[in-house]
Design a protein around this nucleic acid. Structure first.
Length: 113
DNA sequence: CGTCTGACGCCCA
DNA sequence: CTGGGCGCCAGAC
């Protein structure tokens, strides 16, 4: 969008909101789609404020290993794991089983144009 | 303006 | 194979 500059965060939120139900993605994948590739940390940092935005399925975003690295920020309990399980995703030991199977690549599934 | 942090990722020992 | 450290980028203080 030719909008001035919504900010890196909003782009993360927009993309995160596009994650389909029952799918998950990684911080790095989002970062790469935004063009920063190595700023995966920023994605996680943005997620920190995601709680200020509605419709941000942050629980569908995990690290590249499929580990619920941010589950701690969901209230202190396994809320994140339960949310994923509720979507049909198997979570064991704070790790998504068959993560690759549920992986949703924004640059591939959400092809440009 | 300078400094630090941060829900990551990859390289190296 | 496992652990530790550095790098990246943008926002908050």
């Amino acid at each position: 969008m030719p909008d001035d500059g919504p900010g890196f965060f909003e782009r993360v939120y927009e993309l995160t909101k596009l994650i389909p139900y029952g799918r998950v993605t990684s911080y790095g994948a989002i970062a790469r789609y935004l063009g920063s590739g190595r700023s995966a940390r920023m994605v996680g940092y943005a997620m920190n404020n995601s709680h200020l935005y509605p419709g941000i399925p942050a629980h569908r975003v995990v690290n590249r290993k499929g580990m619920l690295s941010g589950k701690q920020h969901f209230g202190g309990r396994d809320i994140m794991a339960q949310l994923l399980t509720n979507e049909g995703i198997i979570v064991e030991n704070d790790c998504i089983v068959d993560f690759d199977k549920y992986f949703w690549d924004p640059g591939r599934e959400l092809k440009p144009e």
